[in-house]
Design a protein around this nucleic acid. Structure first.
Lengths: 191, 191
DNA sequence: CTTCGGTTTCAGAAATTCCTGAAATTCAAA
DNA sequence: TTTGAATTTCAGGAATTTCTGAAACCGAAG
């Protein structure tokens, strides 16, 4: 393994903790990400120096996150693993899974609490108002997300590159307007 | 404190671990979020039953995240704390701070590794190609983010509500096009 | 059915993170 | 400058999370 590869893997390990996964899992993912060919669990152990069971756990977690793909190589009983090559698909999965873990449970809880507070006749407290407000915000954000999630990868990539033009879509009145009205963008359309 | 409030606080405590902050910090934030009036550290201790020093640490971390506001009440030497009332501002801060902690260090590292690999004459390995690809994706995503960050809160809220119309802006060819050219969207404009 | 290459589970050791009380510090008021 | 109410720091104990080796498990081939 080259120095560059090692450093990349170590960095992902370090960052793992900030991303809500542990160091081992981060390193396993990083290794698979920069590996040309799929690797089997023993290959991973060997390269990273983790115990077999640790790698097994790590791969299981990565599978829960849908971040690795299992590959069967015929004539070989072992399982091999890779990451998807399409980076956009990876981002999509990441966002989806984080939403599932970090947002959805809270949304459920907030709705539950609103029901309870209605039952208890506490609809007019400050706390209840705040909870409702928060629930509404999360709902509109997830609605937007669901919507974006439906756009195919290729188009999303374009949207991303269009990037700086996006903010122009929002007018002074706050309405989403036709781009044709901004001269530069219209010119770009001819390419 | 009502049962609803207690539950809300406990939930935020539980979720804290998934959000990369600890239980105590999550609970302190939740308490401030649903509190009508600002609270001082002792008030927080009392309500949550944490040690004074733990609350001090927690508040410090929340200040690092820019998620709480310090308020001085005159005639009182103690410091009081609240959360911003504008939820959109909170989301903005959250995204910004997470970007700073979770994305920026990686971007820096990737650039560093690309330089190193150029020096080492390893520009043609699979790993190097992947690193470049990843760096480019992160760059375009952060560019989009920087852009969105410039839109004021009110317009952002509108964009959020416009939500479902956003995906229609991306056409079959993957170009960002005038809304007027998609019949349904054009029809909607008349409402 | 038994063997064998491989994977998963699990109890406890190791490492890390969290929380506390005591001590140090800060700063407005006297 | 001293006082004292308040905040912050810090060492180390408590709790949690991570990691390991040993044992259990699984299923295809003999």
């Amino acid at each position: 393994m080259t120095r560059i590869e090692r450093e990349f893997i170590l960095h992902f390990g370090e960052m793992g903790s900030r991303w809500g996964i542990n160091r081992t899992v981060g390193q396993i993912y990083a290794l698979l990400f920069i590996s040309d060919a799929p690797l089997c669990a023993d290959g991973i152990c060997e390269r990273l120096g983790f115990s077999r069971s640790n790698v097994s756990m790590g791969l299981k977690e990565l599978q829960n996150w849908r971040l690795v793909i299992r590959k069967h190589i015929d004539g070989d009983r072992r399982e091999f693993f890779t990451t998807p090559t399409d980076l956009m698909a990876i981002v999509r999965t990441l966002v989806e899974e984080r939403k599932k873990r970090e947002i959805d449970p809270t949304l459920t809880k907030l709705r539950e609490l609103e029901l309870e507070s209605a039952d208890a006749g506490q609809t007019d407290t400050y706390a209840t108002a705040r909870i409702t407000e928060l629930r509404e915000l999360i709902e509109s954000m997830t609605a937007l997300y669901d919507d974006l999630a439906r756009i195919e990868t290729e188009r999303l990539a374009t949207l991303l590159k269009a990037g700086s033009t996006l903010s122009k879509l929002v007018t002074a009145t706050g309405r989403v307007i036709p781009m044709r009205s901004t001269p530069k963008a219209a010119a770009n359309e001819d390419k």
